[in-house]
Computed example of a mutant assay.
Amino acid sequence: MGFGQFLSSPEVKLRIVTYRDAFQDAAKVESLFGEEYERLSATILLDAKDITKLSIKENDTLILKNKSGSIVVKAVESGYEQPHPGTAYMVNSPWSNVLVPEEAGGTGVPAFKDFEVVASNSKGAKVTGIKDIV
């Protein structure tokens, strides 16, 4: 038993922006339950500052949660030239859809493209599997 097990993981509030990806779409056509589709879908692209705030390394897993749900995904540095702390990117997929707020703000259309989550280190938990989502 180490002292570190009693310390809570840092939490960071993130705005998630979803996008489409041709490679992920091709992997979905090949197999919705395939490893390639999961690898390309269950990932969050983060700014380097957010990775530091979360005390994680690239390819560690994160828990993302909000009122709509909770999932574990792999964290990857975005590599974008422009800094974007507080804003993260996820491909449109069953993993991002778990977190889409149910409220539609009177429009009848949920906010698939832009919503908030709280992210924290999953401490080595496995990525949420597609069979746990669908």
Rank of each mutant, 00 (worst) to 15 (best):
K49A: 15
K49W: 08
K49D: 15
T52E: 15
K53W: 03
L54C: 13
L54K: 06
L54P: 06
L54R: 04
L54N: 08
L54D: 07
L54I: 13
I56H: 04
I56T: 05
E58R: 07
E58Q: 14
D60T: 07
T61D: 05
L62H: 01
L62R: 01
L64Q: 03
K65D: 11
K65A: 14
N66V: 13
N66T: 08
N66I: 12
S68P: 00
G69I: 12
G69W: 09
S70H: 03
V72A: 12
K74G: 10
A75Y: 07
V76E: 03
V76K: 08
V76S: 03
E77D: 13
E77K: 14
E77F: 05
Y80Q: 04
Y80P: 01
Y80H: 07
Y80L: 12
E81Y: 05
Q82E: 14
P83M: 06
P83R: 06
P83W: 04
H84C: 13
P85L: 13
P85C: 11
G86L: 12
G86E: 08
Y89F: 10
M90L: 01
V91R: 00
N92D: 03
N92F: 01
S96A: 14
S96W: 02
S96P: 02
N97W: 12
N97H: 12
N97I: 07
V98Y: 04
L99N: 05
V100Q: 06
P101A: 09
P101Q: 06
P101T: 09
P101E: 07
E102A: 14
E102W: 08
E102H: 10
E103W: 08
E103M: 07
E103A: 14
A104E: 14
